[in-house]
Design a protein around this nucleic acid. Structure first.
Lengths: 204, 204
DNA sequence: GAAGATTGATTGTTCAATCTTG
DNA sequence: CAAGATTGAACAATCAATCTTC
């Protein structure tokens, strides 16, 4: 509808998807997010910081997979944040090949400021959407994402690229009946916690 | 729904949006598109080629705005495609500061192959969506995109970044009552065509 | 002088190679 | 030898500066 005698609906849909993706990336992430931290951090750095704060310690490879960048890029990004004293890097205890990451005090303060400022802005932008529209849209998006991801990867163990947005009940993961990186991480955390209660693993 | 007692619906929505955007960018564009042309072109190059073929001759600045990259990047990208004989670059007739771009024979053949291969794959991926779902999703996406874009830019004349996906009746542009770059282009083309029928302007 | 396009320096990203630990 | 992390070279993107044409 509203595209009367136009072309391929799939193509039309892709057009909307493209604009939407750009709007989210460029305006919400690039503009809203970065303004919230006074443009002191790039978007990748912000994501990295947030990821570590949410999910506790990580291997570099996991960080890279979550963020959708290469191993090398993740390593260098971590390096930069460590040098700015926002992240702490220590060697793994069990496996000395792996590193452990954690957020420092200043880093955590920066993130908290970011959280509240962003939440406010987003309410301003999307707050007047008809109630239910957003959740309906969320469901539809998840359905389509599942189809697309299912097409590309038959393998079970592929990250769905939730980035910093992982959540407890991820429709995409469910539809694909796939254990994404986040779920794997959680399981590992739970298993470890049952032995040594260090309190790892993201608590939603 | 399906996110029972979970967090902020806006945040949940952003998560889905993120995964969706990644799925479109990485799987549809990066994988499907590039496979369709045998990985001879990068996604940006493909978009550039397609843009020129769809909308006729262009100034570099327009190309950059459509594609969402900087002027400099656009200039260099054009350069590369010209060197590979897929694009033709000639000086503007009226305004010799501007350049005119057109697609060469090989370029057009490459694009046609891409078109049909992509269409086929997409039907395979999304073809079994319940009818109407896609158009409903399209409408919802446009609504949200409008809100986001409206927040960021008060100015009238800003491109909505449709990239190669511009269409005749763009909901986003309508909702914002904004003449996007594409529409400006069309108007200019129509005005010129009424004087000198050179056949410029994209024909849907 | 202003608008358009191009070039140079910097930054960030990837790929391949290397190094270290299991 | 395998898995993980880091480094070096190549490449693309941006910003600032320059050059040409109006």
């Amino acid at each position: 509808m509203s595209e009367p005698k136009n072309e391929d609906p799939i193509r039309t849909f892709l057009g909307s998807a493209h604009i939407f993706a750009n709007a989210v990336a460029q305006i919400i992430e690039e503009k809203v997010w970065r303004e919230a931290v006074g443009n002191q951090l790039t978007v990748s750095q912000l994501k990295l910081l947030k990821l570590v704060s949410l999910s506790g310690e990580h291997k570099i490879g996991d960080v890279a997979a979550f963020l959708g960048i290469s191993n090398a890029a993740a390593s260098k990004a971590v390096d930069k944040l460590v040098r700015r004293m926002l992240l702490r890097r220590s060697e793994g205890e069990a496996d000395r090949r792996a590193i452990h990451l954690s957020v420092t005090g200043p880093g955590r303060r920066l993130l908290e400021a970011h959280e509240s400022a962003t939440k406010e802005k987003l309410a301003e932008i999307l707050g007047d959407m008809p109630p239910g529209t957003l959740s309906k849209l969320t469901d539809l998006l998840d359905q389509v994402s599942s189809k697309i991801i299912a097409y590309s990867a038959q393998s079970e163990d592929i990250c769905v690229q939730c980035g910093i947005y992982f959540r407890e009940r991820c429709l995409v993961g469910q539809e694909l009946s796939r254990r994404c990186l986040y779920m794997r991480q959680k399981d590992a955390g739970r298993k470890a916690a049952s032995q040594v209660p260090t309190g790892s693993g993201p608590d939603s």
